[in-house]
Amino acid sequence: MLTAAEDGDAAAVEKALDDGAGTGARDDRGRTPLLLAALGDHVEAARALVKAGADPDAQDDQDDSAWLVTGVTGSVRMARVLIPAEPDYTLTNRYGGTSLIPAGEHGHVAYVREVLRKTDMEVDHVNRLGWTALLEAVILGDGGRDHQQVVALLLEHGADPELADKEGVTPLEHAEQRGFDRVAALLRDAE
């Protein structure tokens, strides 16, 4: 089951399920078949696992889950498969962040749009670093078009442009320090 999910072999996943394999198997890193499928963006394998009742919130030894890794991969197709499984949108990764935070960091525009439209995920969740998705999009982003769009989406959905990091530095101050003029303009307009 684990190998089939990791390889994205949906037919082999379905056969393993038909033969009585459970969805809760774990590899030596604590990853479930659904997490392995999500990591590889193997949508059909994941679909079969979700249909069989796989847990989208089962976390591995690094606190990753199938749902949480969608924020890293930015896979809208995988998110759409997992949303009907009702993942816990408050579940956090090893940094204390929800899936929206790494999506902001990586500039996953389509994913951020989908999650903000289809879930009730808290847009201003603060991770252990003291950063929100908005702060990560500014601090760890490149200021380019994708990160500009992510910042705009987060602001449109209620992200607080004045919510500062642990040192009291606001997203606007970070954008100005990095020379991200367009991002800074978006943040100024939102204040």
Rank of each mutant, 00 (worst) to 15 (best):
P87M: 04
G168R: 09
R29Y: 10
G30W: 07
L68V: 02
D64F: 09
G104W: 00
W131S: 08
F180L: 03
I139L: 12
P161I: 14
G168I: 05
R80M: 12
A85S: 14
E14I: 02
I139E: 09
I101Q: 08
E6M: 05
V50W: 04
L100T: 00
E156V: 01
L17I: 02
G97D: 07
E86P: 06
V50S: 07
L36V: 00
A164W: 10
D41C: 06
V43G: 05
P84D: 11
R26L: 04
E44A: 09
V72Q: 02
D160K: 15
D181N: 11
G20T: 07
E14K: 06
V151P: 11
R94F: 15
D60F: 00
A16C: 09
H42C: 06
D189T: 12
R26C: 01
V126H: 15
D61Y: 14
A45D: 05
G143M: 10
A5S: 08
K166L: 14
A52D: 15
A37P: 02
D61E: 12
W131Q: 10
A152S: 13
R77L: 07
Q62P: 11
D7N: 15
Q59T: 09
D120G: 12
E86A: 13
T23Q: 08
P84E: 09
V112G: 08
Y111N: 00
P87D: 03
V150H: 10
E176S: 15
T119V: 05
T70W: 02
G97W: 01
V115R: 14
A48K: 07
P33E: 06
S99H: 07
P171W: 07
W131N: 09
P102D: 06
A110H: 02
V183S: 10
T119Y: 11
A4W: 03
V50G: 05
D88K: 04
M121C: 14
E156P: 03
R47M: 12
V126Y: 15
L91H: 10
P87E: 04
